[in-house]
Simulated assay, not measured.
Amino acid sequence: EETIIHRETLNELAANNPNLNLTFVLSDPNWEWTGRIGYAQEHLEDLFDEFTERDFYVCGVPPMVVQAKNRLAELGAPDERIHSEGWEDSVVADD
């Protein structure tokens, strides 16, 4: 929990922008964590009620990014609404 990068900045952005929803998901939290547990791509259906009319920005370790992008596509998100840095696919494919 204490290693979430730019947590204060992200919380401030979400507080000041009603169109920004922010959810932290930790795969291995300490016992005090009360937020979501697991992997972000496992929570997509719980967090969003529709996938065709919004943009998704995915960043993180390459396997998670590729899995999240694939899951978003399965849920109906158009390719042009799924944004990432773009290099993750080739890194995961090489593994």
Results as ranks from 00 to 15, higher is better:
E1K: 02
E1I: 04
E2R: 05
T3D: 15
I4V: 13
I5W: 11
R7W: 08
R7D: 11
T9Y: 10
L10D: 02
L13D: 05
A14F: 03
A15V: 02
N16D: 12
N17M: 00
N17F: 05
N17C: 09
P18W: 01
P18S: 12
N19P: 12
N19I: 00
L20C: 04
S27C: 04
D28S: 05
P29G: 03
P29T: 08
N30F: 01
W31M: 08
W31P: 00
E32C: 00
W33S: 02
T34A: 08
R36E: 10
I37P: 03
I37C: 08
I37G: 05
A40E: 01
E42K: 10
H43A: 01
H43W: 11
L44I: 07
E45G: 04
E45N: 09
D46H: 09
D46R: 05
D46G: 08
L47V: 04
L47S: 02
F48E: 03
F48K: 01
D49Y: 11
D49F: 04
E50I: 07
E50V: 06
F51G: 05
T52I: 08
E53A: 03
R54D: 07
D55I: 02
F56W: 09
F56H: 12
V58C: 12
V58Y: 12
G60C: 10
G60F: 09
V61H: 13
V61K: 15
V61W: 12
P63R: 05
P63F: 12
P63H: 09
M64P: 00
M64H: 08
V65G: 14
V66H: 11
A68N: 07
A68C: 15
K69T: 06
N70F: 06
N70D: 09
R71N: 06
R71Y: 09
A73S: 10
E74F: 08
E74M: 15
G76Y: 13
G76L: 14
A77G: 06
A77H: 10
A77V: 13
P78F: 11
E80Q: 15
E80F: 11
R81C: 13
I82G: 09
H83S: 08
H83K: 15
H83Y: 14
S84G: 12
E85L: 15
E88V: 06
D89F: 06
D89Q: 14
D89W: 10
S90D: 13
V92W: 08
A93V: 02
D94R: 15
